[in-house]
């Protein structure tokens, strides 16, 4: 009987499984947001007045700044990958910076929500409020989930789990973070600007 060979190591995959799985998951997520956005556009096209006169306006400028905060976190998470590939230091710091930027983004969003609710914009006050909280809320929950994943990755990085040769876990987390970052400008333009 020949020496048993492990089936796993036998063929070198083109794309690591973790990354492929994340890409598939993101494809589903894109269609989820496409569903929400198309619903938003349909409801908005059917409305006579948008936004309704009685409802508060959205804080365009503050959220605009906040958009840059989130975009910056996309850059820092990318720096994290660059530093692990280069083998030099900085991975933990870049991941930490990303998490801080993400947390800041969520904090500002939360602050805005509290003010908007105070001004009378709620899920049940109008369809305008309903779509706003649903779209922005769905994104916020995604940022929160990505933040949790990022913190787990950060702890692992601090424990020295990622090397220049082996860092699929970090890459998976980075891809998801970048997805969450990339969705936001689309929502910002559609919900706040147009």
């Amino acid at each position: 009987m020949s020496e048993p060979q492990p089936a796993l190591a036998s063929s070198q995959p083109l794309v690591p499984s973790g990354i492929l799985a994340m890409v598939l998951f993101i494809a589903t997520e894109i269609l989820f947001f496409a569903g929400l956005i198309s619903a938003f556009l349909v409801l908005r096209a059917e409305a006579l007045v948008w936004p309704p006169l009685s409802q508060p306006r959205l804080p365009v400028a503050l959220t605009g700044v906040n958009t840059f905060v989130l975009l910056a976190s996309g850059w820092t998470v990318h720096r994290a990958l660059v530093s692990v590939r280069g083998g030099g230091g900085g991975l933990v710091q870049w991941l930490g910076a990303t998490a801080l930027l993400g947390a800041l983004f969520l904090g500002v969003q939360g602050f805005e929500w509290v003010r908007l609710v105070g001004f009378g914009l709620t899920t049940s006050s109008s369809l305008y409020g309903a779509t706003f909280y649903t779209l922005v809320g769905a994104h916020g929950l995604h940022v929160l989930a990505a933040l949790v994943a990022l913190l787990v990755t950060w702890r692992r990085a601090a424990a020295g789990r990622y090397t220049p040769a082996e860092h699929v876990g970090l890459d998976v987390c980075r891809i998801y973070w970048l997805f969450v970052v990339a969705v936001w400008p689309i929502l910002y333009v559609l919900v706040y600007l147009v």
Binding site: L31, A34, G35, L36
Partner: peptide
Amino acid sequence: LFSVGPLIAGAVM
């Protein structure tokens, strides 16, 4: 995978 996203969006609403 490609069809379930919009339904989940619809179900959430």
